[in-house]
């Protein structure tokens, strides 16, 4: 299912300067730095879903944001299809951001409350001159269909939709610009379990239908286990373990991965398949 490597990240680093104490400020000393992401390397292949797991403050989100330079890296390289992302400016940078789209945890704050769903989706396609975007109706209808929303949703506003539907709209908007990579930053974390499952299946469908590559950031290991081909476990800004999801979860090598897995709550396995089912 996965193809050639399309995104190569090498030794990517982001340091944040901590607030200086009064003494340091008086002596004009530089503040201490904290490496939020420290020399992280990984590859992402076409049609692959790579999970990024770790506790809060482990650097998952900073790493995800650096890929499209919402946060400027301090060191390392990002190469998307042969292009050095860190060197790009202006139009070229915009083009890279088109090719790598992000979906955030809270679709309510990432969608314009004044725009109808249709207008929000169409706007994204129009700005990036997407084929078919001259004609708003069919363009929006195709994207809504892609995320399994009824065409009638185009006339609705974000506040009229449920959390799950809003997240589908956010995905549709990301897809409107024809991306190759989807970065989902805790995209299903705020959703109820039954809706979460629907969204996870949608992500799997999109990968199969469009051959998208995905970086799937989540703190819930179980969610990662369900959709990701490979998983990277982050701790204190570093990837402590990376590999095929089944391998990492069934025989974790890094001590931190073991700690995370041990702490993960799980309901007992659904037993008793012979249970009488109402018919």
């Amino acid at each position: 299912m996965t193809g050639e490597s399309m995104l190569q990240v090498r030794d990517l680093t982001k340091r944040f300067v901590l607030r200086r104490s009064v003494g340091e400020w008086v002596r004009r000393q530089p503040g201490e730095t904290h490496a939020a992401v420290n020399a992280v390397s990984f590859d992402l292949a076409r049609g692959e879903i790579l999970g990024l797991a770790g506790g809060s403050g482990s650097g998952k989100t900073t790493l995800a944001r650096m890929l499209i330079r919402l946060v400027e890296p301090d060191d390392g390289s990002i190469v998307l299809g042969g292009l050095d992302v860190r060197a790009l400016r202006g139009h070229d940078l915009r083009e890279v951001r088109r090719r790598m789209q992000m979906v955030f945890q809270d679709p309510y704050s990432s969608l314009n409350p004044r725009l109808s769903v249709g207008a929000a989706i169409h706007e994204a396609g129009r700005v990036h001159h997407q084929p078919g975007s001259e004609d708003a109706g069919p363009f929006v209808a195709r994207l809504l269909d892609l995320v399994r929303l009824p065409a009638a949703a185009a006339a609705r506003h974000p506040r009229e939709l449920s959390g799950g539907q809003r997240q589908r709209v956010a995905v549709a908007r990301a897809l409107a610009v024809g991306p190759e990579v989807l970065i989902a930053d805790e995209a299903v974390s705020a959703l109820d379990v039954s809706i979460q499952t629907q969204l996870l299946n949608l992500f799997l469908d999109l990968r199969d239908e469009l051959g998208l590559a995905m970086l799937f950031v989540a703190h819930q290991l179980s969610v990662i286990a369900e959709v990701c081909d490979r998983v990277a476990i982050m701790h204190l800004g570093e990837i402590v373990e990376i590999g095929p999801t089944a391998e990492v979860f069934h025989s974790p090598q890094a001590p931190y991965t073991r700690t995370l897995l041990a702490a993960h709550p799980r309901p007992m396995a659904l037993a008793d398949a012979t249970d009488p089912e109402p018919t």
């Binding site: 996870l200 299946n201 290991l221 179980s222 286990a225 979860f249 069934h250 799980r266």
Partner: peptide, 18 residues
């Protein structure tokens, strides 16, 4: 219960009905 994602399903690639 059937729609709860689980760590054990890593690599099984079976979609949940939800």
């Amino acid at each position: 219960l059937e729609s709860i994602p689980s760590v054990e399903s890593a690599g099984r690639r079976v979609r949940r009905a939800g």
